[in-house]
Amino acid sequence: MIATMKKEKCESLEQAREKIDILDTALIEIIATRQFYVDQAVRFKNSVQDVQSPERVEQVINKVRTQAIALGTDPDLVEHLYREMIQRFIQRELKEIRP
């Protein structure tokens, strides 16, 4: 499980930017790890329908929206980011499924 970074009040713009830079690095690492597991999952999929799986997409979207609300962040923003990321991963998977 990935630990949540402790939130602390910043005393300057520079400090806030440093924290944002740290988070950006962590987000990219997390996305790369998610991509690794998407690449693993495609090995178990046999068709375009398995890859596109709209019911799974909606399940993930509902989950992340709920998590966003619980954490006090904008669920619409989170949904938008996830839909874009999922669509990119689906395109990546389709390249593996299609001959």
Rank of each mutant, 00 (worst) to 15 (best):
26 A>T: 07
47 S>Q: 11
82 Y>A: 06
94 L>D: 08
27 L>G: 12
59 Q>S: 07
52 Q>W: 02
10 C>I: 05
96 E>L: 12
11 E>A: 14
39 D>K: 06
87 Q>M: 12
67 Q>Y: 01
28 I>A: 11
2 I>Y: 09
82 Y>K: 01
49 Q>D: 15
72 G>Q: 08
4 T>R: 07
41 A>F: 08
20 I>A: 14
51 V>N: 02
19 K>G: 01
28 I>E: 09
84 E>Y: 11
60 V>P: 01
20 I>G: 05
19 K>Y: 05
94 L>N: 08
87 Q>G: 11
79 E>F: 03
8 E>P: 00
91 Q>I: 06
39 D>R: 05
63 K>S: 03
10 C>M: 13
66 T>H: 04
76 D>W: 01
8 E>D: 06
96 E>T: 14
98 R>I: 14
29 E>N: 09
60 V>G: 00
70 A>G: 05
25 T>C: 03
24 D>K: 13
77 L>V: 15
14 E>R: 14
66 T>L: 13
56 R>N: 11
84 E>P: 00
33 T>N: 10
70 A>I: 03
39 D>M: 09
61 I>A: 03
66 T>Y: 05
70 A>C: 02
40 Q>Y: 12
63 K>H: 09
14 E>S: 13
87 Q>H: 12
47 S>E: 12
74 D>H: 10
37 Y>T: 00
79 E>Q: 09
51 V>G: 04
34 R>C: 06
68 A>L: 02
11 E>V: 12
90 I>H: 04
